[in-house]
Computed example of a mutant assay.
Amino acid sequence: MYLEGHKRKFLVVVDETPECESALAFAASRAQRTRGQLALLYVIEPEDEAMHWLGVEDIAREEGQSKAKAVFRLFGRKLKAMGFEELVPEEIVREGNKADEIPKLIEEDQDIGVLVLGASKDPSGPGPLVSSLAGGRLAGVFPTPITVVPGHLSIEEILALA
């Protein structure tokens, strides 16, 4: 990521949780301020084992791809609304378990320098992804720094901090 022609990427795992917008705001602001790149990852998680017959798996995969495109469009609009009109994120779709696919992607793409996650403000915990990656067994051996954006912060506060 430090060689000429490369940009440090801020990776955000996007889905339909409210905390994703917090992670998006922080990562977009850091990418813009440091002349980096924003990368959005959508992971199509596998359905149960019964779906491997009669083409159901193919249909589920197509639906997952369609959903990924819709989520990318949504977050593209959110970026523009936050004032990041010129920031064009890289859109990445993977299939598998999120906790497995994120480190695999980071190992494959040496330009990814930071994983940005949004923490839930739910009193039951920060969310499964934050718990498994930032606070779990992988925290000490994760291939990049992980930034966790607190869920109680407003977008304006996040942009000011970034």
Rank of each mutant, 00 (worst) to 15 (best):
residue 38 L to R: 12
residue 122 D to T: 11
residue 82 M to N: 05
residue 53 W to C: 04
residue 137 R to M: 14
residue 97 N to T: 15
residue 90 E to L: 03
residue 43 V to W: 01
residue 122 D to E: 09
residue 3 L to H: 09
residue 61 R to Y: 00
residue 121 K to H: 02
residue 147 T to G: 04
residue 60 A to V: 14
residue 82 M to L: 14
residue 55 G to R: 12
residue 72 F to H: 02
residue 56 V to L: 12
residue 110 Q to T: 12
residue 72 F to E: 14
residue 118 G to Y: 01
residue 47 E to S: 09
residue 66 S to V: 08
residue 108 E to I: 01
residue 16 E to Y: 14
residue 58 D to S: 11
residue 47 E to G: 07
residue 91 E to C: 06
residue 28 A to G: 10
residue 158 I to M: 03
residue 93 V to G: 02
residue 114 V to I: 07
residue 64 G to S: 07
residue 102 I to R: 07
residue 147 T to P: 09
residue 21 E to R: 09
residue 125 G to Q: 09
residue 146 I to C: 00
residue 117 L to G: 04
residue 129 L to R: 03
residue 37 Q to I: 04
residue 143 P to V: 01
residue 46 P to Y: 15
residue 51 M to C: 07
residue 84 F to E: 06
residue 49 E to R: 15
residue 131 S to G: 14
residue 141 V to S: 10
residue 139 A to S: 13
residue 45 E to P: 12
residue 99 A to V: 15
residue 143 P to R: 11
residue 127 G to L: 04
residue 53 W to Y: 14
residue 59 I to A: 13
residue 66 S to Y: 02
residue 12 V to M: 07
residue 72 F to M: 10
residue 3 L to V: 15
residue 106 I to P: 01
residue 153 L to F: 02
residue 6 H to G: 12
residue 2 Y to H: 09
residue 70 A to R: 15
residue 7 K to A: 01
residue 121 K to P: 04
residue 31 A to Y: 01
residue 156 E to D: 08
residue 70 A to F: 00
residue 84 F to D: 11
residue 5 G to S: 03
residue 14 V to D: 04
residue 145 P to M: 05
residue 145 P to G: 03
residue 35 R to G: 13
residue 69 K to D: 11
residue 73 R to N: 14
residue 124 S to A: 08
residue 83 G to W: 00
residue 135 G to V: 13
residue 64 G to F: 00
residue 155 I to W: 01
residue 78 K to V: 13
residue 65 Q to I: 15
residue 151 G to M: 05
residue 151 G to E: 02
residue 56 V to Q: 11
residue 18 P to E: 08
residue 53 W to G: 03
residue 52 H to T: 15
residue 61 R to G: 04
residue 66 S to M: 13
residue 76 G to F: 00
residue 32 Q to Y: 01
residue 6 H to I: 14
residue 97 N to G: 10
residue 7 K to S: 03
residue 83 G to P: 04
residue 25 A to R: 04
residue 28 A to S: 10
residue 65 Q to W: 00
residue 4 E to V: 14
residue 9 K to W: 00
residue 19 E to N: 11
residue 105 L to M: 09
residue 7 K to F: 01
residue 100 D to Q: 12
residue 102 I to A: 03
residue 64 G to A: 05
residue 59 I to N: 09
residue 101 E to T: 10
residue 83 G to I: 03
residue 101 E to L: 13
residue 159 L to T: 07
residue 57 E to W: 03
